[in-house]
Design a protein around this nucleic acid. Structure first.
Length: 692
RNA sequence: GCGCCCGUAGCUCAGUUGGAUAGAGCGUUUGGCUACGAACCAAAAGGCCGGGGGUUCGAAUCCCUCCGGGCGCACCA
């Protein structure tokens, strides 16, 4: 019935393995350790729908020419129903041309691996300090996190999304200080906008007002203690601002399952429990001398322990690489007579003379409890992560917050949050070190498996282009290529402002006013823009660039979807236009399928038709790869390519006016494209409008 | 100083488990709507993939080195 999807790459790889195994056996050889089968779509259409370099990889093992090996593989592959023919090309490529009729007839979908369904993934993202309005840097975090959540859910994992509310942090304290002591006048649409200015002014005032700085310390202490006027003000501020943040994010289709409040981590005794556990570890000690005298500190492990963790087998996810590692320390010692880090040099002079292997002039150890007894952020984060993995032996209480979101609470009901098998933390790359320390704490406690399942999803910050910075009134006479945003200086583009500006832009340029609103279009354009870049790429945000709604943009993707939907409606395939992507997603959901007539694939496909079919066929593999690598760019690239190929197809191949059976075939292609595009848009968190 | 990330078209970026002639968008030039939705398509111009070595059948991709950027090296988060 032709609506089911299978992974063609995996299908071909499986059969290639069988064929290659046979060749190896005939030569009296086993499967080489490091040999992986790679099946990919060649860049050029002439090179086939899929191709493999397997013959070239086998050549040194079999001691035969690659072309010969490829030719030996051919008979095996030619028998496959999905393969129309194969070709062997010069260096030793084996190219596959698919039998598209067979592909459209596929009815056996790949099942979701059972083990996956039991792998609960907790994703933490957003986690904005609740003391002022959100800016576009925060929005990038949320878009990435939300997309990863959608991606993993689509791939079959149970996903729970957390937003960590740092309601005891210094930034909240600063906003409270401002509320109490720094007058700000003006009209503001929202509390967060008011606090945006307030926070900047407080930080300005700190520079000259010693009394205010002293007050800051008092407020911080009051928050830590809780149960007083100041701490209640902080609670109210955080709560109000969180609502602003959630309102902002909701406009971009971003949602959460649970808000975790730092206040609750502290006040429900999570740290006390974590502290007891940590004390069992020799890496967690109270320093009696040196720079950290009086502090409880998490020490760097000996090199050996780290090795075992680093050599964890096939983890496709992000490399585990704490930037302060044992090899680095050794290198540091080797050049120890050099300058070294400032404070650390002094430290070393009075360091332990025995060189017990643990002393390090860099002192990469992490303070968890300050000498004054106050916890660091990382300490609370460690407790939180023990809880995330269900390792703490304690749980929060919960109550509904709003719109289906729950929050931790001192008084509430028990819940079933947490207990994750895998944890993803979407946090910008400047925080690699503390993230590595959280993982180290898990290792130190003997939770090696959990440590390996804790992933810091690291991404680059968003800064402002000179033009955009200038528009905000920032002095750009320095001539830098980008200007960082700064909450303390009140420099940045607020999410709500950006959305409003973009909405005005859309309203001004859109040719029709049907279907989704300009605001939705604007939000989608922004979201796509923030997702297009590699995670590690630092985005230099330029308003004019982001506001370009042509070409590779979210608008283009939605437009192609609307265009496909229109053709289906006009062509009498309304049922196909109404199918939801779950028809592709779930092998069990059954049926949408009867809504699509069986196509008769022409023997003389147009290049534009074949290019489109080829790309459609690759969606299941792209999805799997994106999920395995947590690679969002793969999705945006796929989506744009799909939309682009469809547009080319549309231009080259008339659908409604085509004679039968060609018309039915092309309608089927349109239906399938629309469905796949809707699926991708859904994973990307963008609307899939029927008209716009 | 130590470490991590990055350097690809005029601009902004894809492509990096080594593969076939290095791609896209924007910008520039040219052409295409009495319409299956032009928020589109087609074509042209534009590249020693930062420089230099190395590894091999084959390098933007891996290794070494230099140059140039960003970030991190707190009893902040």
């Amino acid at each position: 019935m032709g609506i089911r999807v299978i992974s063609v790459r995996r299908y071909l790889a499986r059969h290639l393995r069988e064929a290659a195994t046979q060749l190896l056996n005939e030569a009296g050889q086993g499967w080489p350790e490091d040999l992986q089968i790679v099946v990919e779509q060649p860049a050029r259409l002439e090179h086939g729908d899929y191709a493999t370099n397997l013959a070239m990889r086998l050549a040194p093992v079999l001691h035969r020419a690659p072309v010969q090996i490829a030719e030996a593989l051919q008979p095996f592959m030619n028998q496959l129903p999905l393969v129309a023919r194969t070709e062997v090309v010069r260096p030793g490529f084996l190219n596959f041309f698919l039998n598209w009729q067979a592909w459209t007839d596929v009815t056996t979908p790949d099942p979701i691996p059972a083990e996956r369904v039991q792998t609960k993934v907790v994703i933490e993202h957003t986690s904005i300090n609740p003391n002022k309005a959100a800016h576009i840097g925060h929005l990038r975090n949320s878009c990435i996190g939300d997309t990863l959540g959608r991606l993993l859910r689509r791939a079959g994992y149970p996903v729970e999304v957390h937003n960590y509310i740092d309601d005891l942090g210094n930034q909240v304290a600063d906003t409270v200080v401002g509320l109490l002591h720094v007058p700000v006048h003006g009209q503001y649409a929202r509390f967060g906008d008011f606090c945006w200015d307030l926070y900047a002014q407080v930080n300005q005032a700190y520079k000259t007002d010693e009394a205010l700085k002293a007050r800051r310390v008092e407020v911080q202490k009051a928050l830590e203690d809780g149960g007083n006027n100041v701490s209640w003000i902080a609670t109210l501020v955080a709560d109000r601002i969180v609502r602003d943040h959630l309102e902002d994010m909701a406009q971009f289709g971003i949602h959460y399952d649970l808000l975790v409040h730092e206040y609750d981590i502290v006040h429900m005794g999570f740290w006390a429990a974590a502290f007891e556990k940590l004390k069992q570890s020799p890496l967690f000690v109270k320093e009696t001398e040196g720079k950290y005298a009086g502090c409880w500190v998490l020490k760097q492990p000996p090199a050996a322990a780290e090795q075992t963790v680093l050599s964890k087998p096939l983890e496709p996810l992000e490399a585990t690489a704490p930037n302060v590692s044992a090899p680095e320390r050794e290198r540091g010692l080797a050049t120890a007579d050099g300058e070294g880090a400032r404070g650390a040099c002094k430290e070393r002079q009075e360091g332990e003379p025995d060189g017990g292997g643990e002393d390090s002039e860099y002192n990469p150890d992490k303070v968890l409890v300050r000498s004054n007894g106050v916890l660091t952020y990382t300490a609370k984060d460690i407790a939180y992560h023990l809880w995330k993995f269900g390792l703490l032996g304690q749980d929060f209480l919960y109550r509904p917050f709003e719109d289906g979101i729950w929050t931790t609470a001192e008084q509430g009901e028990p819940g079933s949050f947490g207990r994750a098998k895998r944890v993803l933390n979407v946090i910008d790359k400047r925080q690699e070190y503390p993230q590595a320390m959280v993982r180290l704490a898990l290792q130190a406690l003997g939770f090696a498996e959990e440590a390996s399942q804790l992933h810091h999803v690291s991404y680059g910050v968003v800064s402002l282009s000179p033009a955009t910075a200038a528009r905000l009134g920032i002095d750009i006479s320095e001539g830098k290529s980008s200007y960082p945003m700064s909450g303390r200086q009140g420099i940045g583009i607020k999410v709500s402002d950006l959305l409003a500006q973009m909405e005005a832009t859309v309203e001004a340029v859109r040719p029709r006013k049907e279907g989704i609103s300009s605001r939705q279009v604007a939000a989608a354009a922004i979201r796509y823009f923030l997702l297009r870049f590699n995670l590690l790429t630092e985005i230099v945000f330029d308003f004019d660039q982001a506001a370009d709604l042509h070409g590779n943009s979210g608008v283009y993707l939605m437009y192609q979807h609307a265009r496909a939907a229109k053709i289906l409606r006009d062509g009498g395939w309304a049922a196909a236009a109404a199918l939801t992507p779950t028809a592709l997603a779930s092998p069990l959901s059954g049926d949408g399928t009867s809504a699509l007539p069986t196509p008769q694939v022409p023997s003389d496909l147009l290049p534009e038709e074949r290019a489109l079919l080829r790309h459609l066929a690759d969606w299941p593999d792209t999805l799997e790869q994106a999920a395995a690598e947590l690679n969002v760019t793969l999705l945006t690239t796929y989506a744009f390519e799909l939309a682009s190929l469809f547009s080319t197809f549309y231009d080259a191949a008339p659908v409604l006016k085509a004679p039968e059976p060609l018309r039915t075939f092309r309608m089927w292609v349109v239906a399938r494209t629309r469905l796949t595009l809707a699926d991708v848009l859904n994973v990307l968190g963008l609307p899939a409008p029927d008209q716009m």
